[in-house]
Design a protein around this nucleic acid. Structure first.
Lengths: 342, 342
DNA sequence: CTGAAAGCGCTTACAG
DNA sequence: CTGAAAGCGCTTACAG
């Protein structure tokens, strides 16, 4: 029994008689023998590993992607190497040294707007790369139609009768999450929607901040200090929307009577917070990105990874949106909290 | 320039003249040369990788641990291999085949109450193992003093004057999270506290369910259907507490007037939900577990991983707890939502 | 269908 | 301090 025969038998390659295959497998099972990963890697040049690069593993969004992508990757018999960038220093380190070299067969990069050099470095790796949440001319990507989703969100506010509509966008430049940002098209889509409704854009009604509860609260506070504050706000993430709700209530506003809010994500807790939001099947996006990569790793898989897959979104109407209060109802009705009313 | 000299120079081993070391490093930098990980692994038997095993990467708790442990592991120049168990089938697969064999130098296992066989399999790996959130006679562990924390939580309710106190515990046996469970000692601590206050235990006031918003809501519904429902409840996780809040409000109760709630975790959103809870520095627990493992991997590191590290907890008082309403105030004051009142 | 041999790219005694 | 050689445990043409 030469090692070559054992190798072929265990991997199910042709050229081994059924009898010896069975015998070898039985012995291997009895002995608990497994081929050494390091040795196979060296011999084949294949690591059997997919790297998942995230800005911050503590964010709900990334947890969903890691889980969705991870289960697809594991189902394909491959390992998940997790790279968390952390801060901008971590991002620099990751992209300057070729950390992934020889450690993964494919790379998934989440929610990063890549600079020219960063894209170049990823290409130099000469591995299938798929982006999630952003697109690039160089790599495949999975994302939602940000424009359409934003139009739906803002359109919902317009349909309810709102005319002063604020926008809270993501801008993490001063943040630990390494410059991760929601696609600018999300903001662009909102603007389109406002213009289509004949609502003029106002700088004071567009605020940006880091993607966190506190970032959303701060942005809402800025919106409320506008000469004429908005009656409805589209917030680029649910976490920011939670903060915005908190800030609006702290300012004595009733939601949705004095302030309507639409989020983005359909976070696990959006239902509890009774937040109207855009669902964007984040887990599904992770799985789709993994599939693109796995397909690129299949035998024929040349550039199969270089595709764009668009995931559907839909509006989930909940209790944070309603028609704006008229001046009359505003003073007539006593301020009362509403979201827990069954 | 023999490969052996290059190898020594690049790894900073002694026995290389300063001149050649400098020259070799310069050339390597110019060429962007890096030693092949697969080849070094095969030659040394060291993978430079730490495996982190989690039941479910989408849970807030695990995201925090992954982040805290991951950044310590990465800072030590090692890679993070992420294993998400998913469902009980995934758990079975993980523990039956020796998936980690030859893929990691150390293993961190989160929030799993290990069976005898599972512990045996981990030991057979012959690698440093550290548990997080559970302890075991066989492995090192990082956790909080569950009993003390639970006593603090329940003690807070007792101090406020509550005498009918409910308990919501975690029991994921029917759940996808692979039997992850909060330590039984958390429940035990609560019971101690009740007994110390002279409050008899009642089965109807102890409910268990999966660690999720829905699990918490369902458990609260069961508590509310008790002959005499509790006026205060200690919930074993913040996510469950969010669900419990929702269910209590849906039943027309005002929090904290009709129902006080103490959670466990100090989840990112606990502040927004104004939830009184036990903070248990989850990120710090992850970092501590990583340090235990990293220390065990150091040259002298024999059984350094086999320690128990206890992380401090503290009560964070917020708006979901107050003295129980007396019968008088209960009918006198109109039902009103309170948490947003600044 | 089976086996012997070379090679993957490092590291580590061992000589010099 | 430097280099030549063996070895880590696989896989893959190549012979038989």
């Amino acid at each position: 029994m030469a090692t070559s025969t054992v190798s072929r038998a265990l991997r199910g390659l042709p050229g081994v008689s059924k009898a010896t295959r069975v015998r070898i497998r039985k012995i291997a099972a009895d002995l608990g023998y497994q081929a050494s990963p390091s040795a196979s890697r060296l011999a084949t040049g294949v690591t059997g590993t997919v790297a998942v690069v995230v800005p911050d593993a503590t964010k709900w969004f990334f947890g969903q992607v890691i889980s969705g992508a991870g289960s697809a990757i594991r189902a394909a018999g491959r390992d998940v190497l997790l790279y968390e960038l952390g801060d901008s220093e971590g991002r620099r380190r990751f992209f300057s040294q070729q950390v992934l070299r020889g450690r993964a067969d494919a790379v998934m990069v989440l929610s990063l707007s890549l600079t020219q050099q960063e894209a170049g470095m990823l290409q130099a790796l000469n591995l299938p790369v798929v982006l999630l949440g952003h697109s690039s001319e160089y790599f495949g990507s999975v994302r939602v139609d940000e424009r359409a989703a934003a139009r739906t969100a803002v359109g919902h506010l317009v349909d309810l009768g709102h005319r002063r509509i604020g926008l809270i966008g993501i801008d993490d430049e001063r943040e630990a999450t390494a410059g991760s940002a929601a696609p600018p098209s999300r903001v662009a889509g909102s603007r389109q929607s406002l213009l289509a409704a004949g609502i003029p854009l106002e700088d004071a009604l567009q605020q940006f901040g880091p993607n966190s509860v506190d970032g959303g609260a701060a942005a809402m506070e800025r919106l409320l200090s506008a000469p004429v504050p908005p009656t409805g706000v589209f917030v680029s993430s649910d976490e920011m929307a939670f903060g915005a709700m908190e800030a609006a209530r702290a300012a004595g506003l009733d939601i949705p009577r004095d302030m309507s809010l639409v989020g983005f994500d359909n976070h696990d807790l959006a239902r509890v917070m009774d937040l109207t939001t855009i669902d964007q099947d984040v887990r599904g996006q992770g799985a789709a990105a993994a599939e693109l990569l796995l397909r690129a790793l299949e035998p024929p898989g040349s550039g199969a990874a270089r595709q764009t897959r668009i995931i559907n979104t839909h509006l989930v109407k909940r209790g944070t949106t309603s028609a704006p209060a008229t001046a009359a109802t505003r003073s007539a009705r006593p301020s009362r909290k509403t979201r827990q009313q069954p």
